[in-house]
């Protein structure tokens, strides 16, 4: 079964490699599983997802990330993407002048073998069916990627790309941020529709509310660059009721004891 394995990972900003942000994180995700990573702001959740995807601003100082048992750390970001890792960005970039249809098409084309041409008719058929699923207007695809989009539109655009590219592992970074409740529901429904044996999800979120719609198999609490507590979906509810201070207090008690 495909696996994404994070082993004792240390990540720092490339500019300040001696100041780790992620400090010895270990986690294994299998396809078919949804892992929620929760935690207060500034605890390294976004850093973790960007480092796995290979963002050049970050450097992995020790540890490893393995896809199906093979390290991906030497791979370029685009190689990691084509190997099946998808990052749904918290703040997706704007690409002026490039339509969603053309952008996704280029991404789909990039996954074909050399010399193989994309079947345009089949592509559009698939694109439109995914758009229907996500309740996205057809006109949407002729707009430039993320340019002048509302928060909800940006996230829907991310989910549409994910649906089209069919990754093995999706890292979803604060997908709920900036969404009103209706947009949240639509995005969550989209993810739920993709959920299944072929997809593993790492769902990064600050709030419990997204987990009302995407019910996780596992919940991990991240604090100060590490996973400090793991459990099932009830842990998220407990967090919601008691707040992150509860985790901090428990942690403080554990270290002093």
């Amino acid at each position: 079964m495909p696996s994404l394995e994070i082993r004792d990972l240390f990540v720092a900003l490339a500019a300040t490699p001696d100041k780790p942000i992620v400090k010895g994180l270990t986690l294994t995700i299998l396809t078919g599983e949804v892992h929620a990573i929760m935690g207060p702001n500034g605890t390294g959740k976004s850093t973790l997802s960007k480092a796995i995807a290979g963002h050049p601003d970050y450097v992995i100082t020790s540890g490893d990330v393995l896809l199906d048992g093979k390290s991906i750390l030497e791979m370029e970001p685009d190689q990691r993407a084509r190997a099946g890792i998808f990052l749904a960005f918290q703040y997706p970039s704007e690409i002026p002048g490039v339509t969603i249809a053309n952008f996704v098409r280029a991404a789909v084309q990039a996954r074909l073998a050399e010399g193989e041409d994309l079947d345009a008719t089949a592509y559009y058929k698939r694109l439109y069916s995914k758009m229907d699923l996500l309740k996205i207007d057809r006109k949407f695809t002729s707009r430039s990627v993320n340019e002048g989009f509302s928060g909800g539109e940006k996230k829907r655009c991310e989910i549409l790309q994910m649906a089209m590219l069919e990754p093995t592992f999706a890292l979803m970074d604060e997908t709920d941020s900036g969404l009103d409740i209706d947009a949240l529901r639509i995005v969550a429904e989209g993810v739920e529709a993709m959920r299944g044996d072929k997809l593993g999800v790492m769902l990064i979120t600050h709030y419990q509310r997204l987990l009302d719609y995407i019910v996780p198999d596992f919940v991990h609490v991240m604090y100060d660059g590490r996973i400090v507590k793991s459990g099932d979906k009830t842990l998220a509810l407990e967090l919601e009721a008691k707040g992150y201070d509860w985790v901090k207090q428990e942690l403080a008690a554990a270290t002093t004891a």
Binding site: P56, P77, D78, F86, F89, I95, F103, S144
Partner: peptide
């Protein structure tokens, strides 16, 4: 990086940005 994360090589990403 955003474009590379979707599977485009650096050159393809640049080219798309310029064409846009």
């Amino acid at each position: 990086f955003y474009m590379q994360q979707r599977g485009l090589t650096e050159a393809q990403a640049m080219s798309l940005a310029v064409n846009g």
